[in-house]
Design a protein around this nucleic acid. Structure first.
Length: 216
DNA sequence: GTTAGGATGATCT
DNA sequence: GATCATCCTAACA
């Protein structure tokens, strides 16, 4: 069977580029998540780039650790971390091996397997809520630390829990950029958040709000 | 429609 | 002990 053009898996060379090229290029692509219960397809609509060891917003900013080790590894693998005590977030490692860059997958549209995604997400009222926001996205796809370091470009597609398909990239004019969510300080200066303009699944922007430490 | 606050734990200083 | 690339609910306009 000859796969349709838009269902070709992206090869590793796709991710072996500067992360600021890869991130916008991921919009409109389809992330395939295979589980024992079925397949979920997600059309990516919002991502953020985390660019190397000098990016103060990046987990790799303070060097390599057990937690972020896969970011320093070869491109085309997942980086999954646990945050805020209850949520997971899913990233894709980019750039050549040794360059700790990655793309945070922030939001997308479930195009297949919505029932399965809904089962993973306990509270979601509307279809566009299912993967609207990085933690929701990871929850909908049933992603946790067990999937950290998974190969997205493995030789045997059947053996991988993830695959990214060519999909249908949006017209460049509809790609918007802005500051990243929740990144303050020097990191906020860079417009390294990318989304598809007007897409209902894009998460609402929340500016970085410094924690109040007053406790009278 | 908006906003404030609580939940919750690994990681790093 | 502070931080954190968040989400959800309740309360209010």
């Amino acid at each position: 069977m000859i796969p349709a053009p838009d269902s070709t898996p992206l090869p590793r060379v796709f991710f072996d580029r500067p992360v600021l090229e890869v991130a916008p290029d991921l919009l409109g692509r389809t992330l395939l998540r295979s589980t024992d219960d079925g397949v979920i397809a997600l059309r990516l609509t919002e991502v953020e780039a985390y660019a190397g060891p000098d990016d103060p917003g990046s987990h790799a900013f303070r060097g390599r650790s057990d937690r972020n080790a896969v970011m320093f590894g070869p491109p085309g693998h997942t980086y999954v971390y646990f945050t805020y005590g209850m949520w997971h977030c899913l990233n894709l490692v980019c750039g050549p091996e040794g360059d700790p860059s990655g793309v945070l997958l922030r939001a997308g549209e479930i195009t297949e397997g919505a029932d399965l995604a809904r089962k993973h997400r306990l509270t979601s009222r509307r279809p566009h809520d299912l993967a609207q926001g990085p933690a929701r996205l990871a929850t909908a796809l049933d992603v946790d630390r067990a999937l950290n370091g998974a190969d997205v470009c493995g030789a045997d597609p059947a053996a991988s829990p993830f695959r990214i398909l060519t999909g249908t990239p949006p017209a460049p004019a509809t790609i918007r950029t802005g500051p990243r969510t929740g990144v303050g300080g020097d990191g906020a200066a860079h417009p390294w958040r990318y989304w598809i303009d007007g897409d209902p699944t894009v998460s609402p922007y929340r500016a970085h709000a410094p924690r109040r430490r007053d406790k009278q």
